[in-house]
């Protein structure tokens, strides 16, 4: 049977695909438990080490990685909270309310999401230096530049899906527009808001350019920047690098596994016309 054979071929391709995705993690994970002496030289490619060790993970506690994870968590959480709030309001107005300049606003939001971030880094850096805001959590403010447009787009599609009858019956009952939004629309759009929040969180967690530029003091490094500095100029301690990679990756993995559905709906909400 041709179909059976095709199915088997597809299954093999899928398995191969999954293997290619996870292979780097597995190999990096294996290395992170090897003593430094076995990471180099002839033993470098052995899968199992007879002298497994936790030394690299223990060394990370002394290094700044944990502090940088804390920074990342604080910065990502603050940004997610206020961006989701601002985007929800804006998206509801776009999806449901009438106002002058709606198309212009949409065009501006779309355009800012397409501009290379590199264009804002110089001026924002100079302003931050003038205000003394470098190396602080003020970095959450310019993060709106990367996250706000995406959050707005996700939320517009979700608010548009809430049935119009809900609002109409509320307004017949004499509820104000604001009350309708808070009491009726928000609860119904909660899954969408949650999706936008997760996508925002991941976006900020993964950001590199602004963080590298504005928070150059190692006490204010976020995880993505701190980890890039582990690769020194002359000497690289792969043991620590691989251990740090595992530590930084785990929060992401947890988020992906828990919120798989929301993430996919967020990623595809702009791309697929329903």
């Amino acid at each position: 049977m041709v179909n059976k054979r095709a199915e088997r071929l597809f299954a093999i391709i899928i398995v191969l695909y999954l293997l290619i995705i996870v292979f780097p993690f597995i190999w990096v994970g294996i290395t992170s438990f090897k003593p430094e002496s076995e990471i180099w030289g002839t033993e470098a490619l052995n899968v199992f080490s007879s002298n497994s060790t936790m030394e690299h993970y223990l060394a990370l506690f002394k290094a700044n990685i944990l502090n940088s994870l804390k920074n990342s968590l604080i910065i990502s959480s603050i940004t997610t909270l206020y961006v989701t709030f601002v985007a929800s309001c804006c998206a509801y107005a776009i999806a449901r309310l009438k106002f002058i300049g709606k198309n212009l606003l949409l065009a501006v939001v779309l355009a800012t999401s397409m501009f290379p971030q590199m264009i804002v880094v110089g001026p924002i850096y100079n302003i931050f230096v003038k205000l003394g805001w470098t190396n602080s959590y003020f970095i959450t403010l310019p993060y709106s530049m990367i996250t706000l447009p995406v959050a707005i787009f996700i939320l517009v599609t979700h608010f548009a899906k809430v049935p119009k009858e809900m609002e109409e019956s509320a307004s017949i009952d004499g509820a104000s527009k604001m009350r309708t939004f808070i009491k009726i629309i928000l609860p119904l759009a909660l899954p969408g808001i949650f999706t936008a929040a997760i996508i925002t969180f991941i976006g900020v967690w993964n950001e590199f350019l602004l963080s590298l530029t504005l928070n150059s003091d190692s006490n204010y490094h976020t995880a993505t920047v701190a980890i890039s500095f582990l690769r020194g100029q002359f000497q690289i301690f792969w043991g620590q690098v691989t251990a740090a990679t595992m530590v930084v990756t785990i929060p992401t993995l947890i988020i992906v596994i828990l919120f798989q559905k929301q993430i996919i709906s967020g990623l595809t909400s702009g791309a697929v016309k329903e």
Binding site: N206, A223, T224, V225, I227, S228, R231, V248
Partner: peptide, 8 residues
């Protein structure tokens, strides 16, 4: 994060 992937 891209920087983590790059390091890996």
């Amino acid at each position: 994060p891209t920087s983590v992937a790059a390091l890996m």
